[in-house]
Computed example of a mutant assay.
Amino acid sequence: MEVVVDVPQFRRIAAEIAARIASGELAPGTKVASTRQITAQYGVAMATATKVLATLREQGLVRATPGVGTVVTRRARPVGSGPDRDLVVSTAITIADAEGLTGLSMRRLAGELGVPTMSLYRHVQDKEELVLLMTDKVMAANPPPALSPETDGWRACVEALARLQWSMYRRHTWLAQAISFTRPLLAPHAMAHTEWTMRALDAYGLDPNTQFRAAVMVANYVRGTAVNLEDEAQAEQESGLTDKEWMRAQQNRLATVLASRQLPMMARAIAADHLEFDLDILLEFGLQRLLDGLAPLLD
């Protein structure tokens, strides 16, 4: 009696694409079909197409590249006794940059390095320690700016550090998800950022508790704004639309909502020719107001 195994549709599609990669038809760096293209080509739902790409990523065959799409990757081969800790952490950062923390697993990382999953535990205890090391490595590569409160003033110092942190979150959209101010990762180079801000405020008569709260308040504001970046990148990857393109596609719906005349203030703002709004503008506006609020305590 022949036994027929019902293979899920997403696995059949993933296997077909994997075979094309194995044959060399899809070479490393080649862009593979997006979720929208898979949906159109195979006549499947968006959820199925998403599972196809997730399966290929889990197998280490593709990776999401911001601004490009999902491309074929090449698995690294173990050299000598295998990768050292620095290579493990650097590779994990590369994966998280492309796919977020949800796309990073010990199995996924091992596949990218071309080593057995269990071999990674010679370098890190678990994923939590891995994320700690990733965070600390990014922070170490971005030391506080070369300013001093004596010559540049406290505001210029705090502002420069906030913008530095924002640029880090822009480059590593997973970083905001990794950082917590209630259960902080004890990453020495991240703690050095807080220390530097406290030092910038130290000559203005604030007690240590107030210095610490002020430093964390500013850092938390930047981080709180940055948590939207990963969702923004994921939405762009899945839809194939930038934020501006998505907003243009919503114009008819927006017009219908505003036509109800229940939101006159928002309607007036949106109708203004000079209205601009994105996360960079929001960050800058809020940062200046936050520093304005600190000024009376220090000036």
Rank of each mutant, 00 (worst) to 15 (best):
G240W: 05
A219C: 10
P144V: 11
V88A: 05
Q177H: 15
A192M: 05
A110C: 05
A156C: 06
S34G: 05
I13D: 02
L206Y: 05
L147W: 06
L175N: 02
M139C: 15
T242G: 06
R74M: 05
M106Q: 05
A187G: 12
L287F: 02
R63P: 02
A146L: 13
V7A: 05
G24V: 10
G103Y: 06
G82H: 11
V131S: 07
H193V: 08
E195L: 11
E2L: 09
E129H: 06
A162M: 06
L130T: 03
P264N: 05
E16W: 03
D299L: 09
T50L: 04
A76V: 00
A47L: 07
E16H: 09
P143I: 06
H123M: 10
Q125W: 04
D136F: 07
G153T: 10
W246P: 01
V115M: 10
V227H: 05
Q9G: 01
V131N: 06
A14K: 02
N228H: 11
R108N: 08
E195I: 05
L283W: 00
E129I: 03
E99Y: 04
V115F: 06
R57Q: 15
D6M: 12
T242K: 08
W166A: 07
A40P: 00
L164Q: 15
N252I: 02
I17W: 07
L26N: 03
L26C: 04
A214K: 01
M198C: 13
E150D: 14
A96G: 11
A49I: 02
S239G: 08
D299P: 14
T256F: 07
S119A: 14
V68C: 02
T225K: 06
A235Y: 04
I17N: 02
R155C: 03
A259R: 13
C157H: 09
